[in-house]
Design a protein around this nucleic acid. Structure first.
Lengths: 121, 121
DNA sequence: TTAGCTGTATTACATATCTATTACACTCAT
DNA sequence: ATGAGTGTAATAGATATGTAATACAGCTAA
């Protein structure tokens, strides 16, 4: 996996895993790959993977069975809410960033439509 | 100014200055505050400001008169193009991030409209 | 019980970022 | 010429991030 510079890798891994869940590629109760496999896949150190997982553990998205592995929570509501939060965060950020560039709320839809039309291919 | 953790401050300052330009608060040919003033304003070290300015210098947005200060380029076209690029980058990122969360291109406008309506107040 | 898989912890090292401090170089108004 | 304002450079120290290597601890299947 290619990581952006200037953003900690462990955060990018966390984001990656969150997206896997949002996309339904990791489902409730499922075991996720071991820290060592993930470290290999992502060409990153075990400790860095570990750090990402710890945070998701704290947030209840994953739970750990020591000696067995990490598993996606079985709390379906939490998963759904998490996905929605991820989407809402993107929307928040988008609206805020555009405002900081002088693009008003009212023109956002128009701007987006134009952009989508022009980048069709 | 409040800075996000996890993103280098000098990048956030650079972004801040770009936005000032996009908003027209810093106009072509104008002198910008001295590195020491900016450092005070932003409660940050002079070196950190310096680092942000160097990059903008390299990109031609600013030019330096040693002993006098830093000035916004007089190249109006470049300024306009820069603003447009900033906006396009936000759109790019938004579309890509939403895709990574499973929100398709076709539904983006609808999702945005709904979001804007619901967050009115 | 043992082998091989899990997660976890610790240590040491390298690099990037940021601060603080000091010094230097240039320009302009006086 | 001098002083006050500019940008620039260099050093030292603190903290965060990431790697590498090693060791430990728990689970499961053979």
């Amino acid at each position: 996996m290619e990581f952006k510079d200037n953003i900690p890798i462990y955060l990018q891994i966390e984001q990656y895993l969150y997206r896997q869940i949002a996309l339904g590629k990791m489902k409730a109760g499922e075991k996720i790959p071991s820290v060592r496999k993930l470290a290999l896949e992502l060409t990153v150190n075990v400790n860095t993977v570990q750090r990402a997982l710890q945070q998701m553990n704290d947030q209840g998205i994953l739970y750990t069975k020591r000696g067995e592995g990490n598993f996606v929570t079985e709390d379906i509501e939490l998963l759904a809410k998490t996905k929605q939060t991820l989407i809402d965060n993107q929307l928040d950020e988008f609206v805020q960033n555009m405002a900081k560039l002088g693009v008003e709320r009212d023109s956002l839809v128009t701007v987006l439509e134009k952009y989508l039309k022009e980048s069709e291919e």
